[in-house]
Amino acid sequence: MMNDPMIRAVDVHKHFGPVEVLKGVSLDVAKGEVIAVIGPSGSGKSTFLRCLIHLETVHRGTIRIEGETLVSTDAEGHCRYVPDPEIRRICGKMGMVFQHFNLFPHLTVLQNIIEAPMTVKGLRREEIVPKAEVLLKKVGLLEKRDSYPSRLSGGQKQRVAIARALAMEPDIMLFDEPTSALDPELTGEVLRTMRQLAEEHMTMVVVTHEMAFAREVASRAIFMDDGLIVEARPARELFAAPEHPRTKAFLENML
């Protein structure tokens, strides 16, 4: 299993009613890779990310996480997910950060972070609190440990959300437009935290509109359009010399 990619998605299809959102997306993500997924809105990039962690179900295709099958499709086209406890265990290898943070407003910053390790992993409070404090220090918010999320700025909220995901010790981190809901002056602090994670060789898939981040931090950039991956290449190459005309047009628009 050593050679299994962290994520293997093969021919993933997804539709919402009659609207085909993913038309056969395939992607391998190796350990330590940082993938930036870019593309116009409605291209299916967020949906693809959500399929990886089973927030959406696929209608065809295969997804394997660290060699373990989450969903597979047989020759007749029947799509089968593994049983629920397996899904939970496999998706537990991944952490996710959302555009709108999704912090729990009734819990303090510290409680947000220790909730899942205690409830899901059964850790005792005194085991997890020191770890949570290390994570808070890492994202620079230790002094906010007893604040409620409503007292934090957007950038602080997102950093807490990152710490909360990391507290479950995932092997892979998924980011769904983590800075899109932030005021421009607050994106920097979140991107810095993500860059730090990338430098620690966390495997990351980042759906983003931050082209500078994608170019500088990502090892590979993927351009999606209309439910398909149009171009997937080392980030610097893709930004320096996009091959596909649609990629070109998109980047010219963005930069």
């Binding site: 927030l55 729990f104 899901v120 992993k121």
Partner: peptide, 26 residues
């Protein structure tokens, strides 16, 4: 908000845990 369920789900909470720990207190 649906995001509360999703936030809990990606952390590994079951539906019952999500209800008890996250949704009902709010």
């Amino acid at each position: 908000d649906r995001g509360q369920y999703e936030g809990a789900r990606v952390l590994g909470l079951t539906y019952a845990q999500t209800m008890r720990r996250i949704v009902l207190p709010q």
